[in-house]
């Protein structure tokens, strides 16, 4: 077993915060969304709608901030390194992703025994992260189409007609929420199945020892025990 060191450089603090906002926002939006879809217990509608509309705006603004910030904030282009470059580079396809889509699929299907070398994200991961902002904006747009004060604004009424009237917009908004839920399931699963260190990094900004990686050459360069302050992964005796 092996994994790369997790450094704070891979997830700078602003992105830890936007991720927190996403987590809280999604949970509240999905719950209140289900409630607005069908009020499965009484006496909560105006609260549910208030929370839903408020966090809808929060998530969309957060998403726009996250995308814009990617052009300004620097982050590590891979795990296992403290070198940084503009974050958008690791969001878009990188040199390290080349020829690796097949490798990742084979790895997850247990055909390939060894962990593929990657860039910051694996190829399927990168594709899904690339689509998420569009999904959030689509949800924000259809959400506003269903929000009475926006319904008669031309930008939204045109979309309502395009998507099949308000009944149609409701179906789009609803079905894509399930796409979100499926994404979250897969995301949470893949982020944690090989150990919880990515989660500690993402939420608590806690570094974790592991292999070091050179994004220039695309090779493993050694092992960083974080100055011995953190224990090494079990069953990983250093063989000289």
């Amino acid at each position: 077993m092996a994994h790369l060191a997790h450094y704070r450089e891979s997830h700078p603090l602003p992105f830890v915060i936007t991720h927190w906002i996403n987590l809280v926002g999604f949970i509240l939006l999905i719950f209140t969304g289900f409630y607005i879809h069908y009020p499965f217990f009484p006496n909560f509608m105006s609260q549910a709608r208030g929370v839903h509309i408020f966090f809808g705006f929060v998530i969309v603004i957060n998403c726009i901030f996250r995308v814009v910030a990617a052009f300004f904030i620097k982050s590590a282009p891979a795990e296992g390194t403290r070198t940084v470059e503009t974050d958008i580079h690791s969001w878009l396809p990188q040199k390290g992703n080349r020829h690796q889509l097949g490798a990742w699929i084979k790895y997850y299907l247990f055909i390939k025994k060894t962990h593929p070398l990657g860039a910051k994200f694996g190829v399927p991961q990168k594709i899904s992260y690339g689509l998420i902002p569009f999904l959030i904006l689509f949800m924000g747009y259809t959400g506003l189409c269903l929000w009475a004060p926006a319904q008669q604004v031309g930008f939204f009424s045109a979309g309502i007609t395009l998507l099949g009237g308000l009944a149609g917009v409701r179906v789009w908004h609803y079905v894509f929420m399930w796409v979100f839920i499926i994404f979250i399931f897969i995301h949470v699963y893949l982020a944690n199945i090989e150990g919880l260190s990515p989660t500690f990094m993402m939420f608590l900004w806690k570094e974790h020892p592991g292999l070091t990686y050179d994004p220039e050459t695309g090779t493993i360069t050694g092992y960083d025990d974080l100055g011995g302050s953190a224990p090494k992964t079990e069953a990983a005796p250093v063989a000289k």
């Binding site: 690796q100 097949g102 090989e194 150990g195 292999l211 493993i220 992964t233 069953a235």
Partner: peptide
Amino acid sequence: TKGGADFEPIRTY
């Protein structure tokens, strides 16, 4: 589940 599989030493390609 405890840290993932060992890394490939070089990309297959």
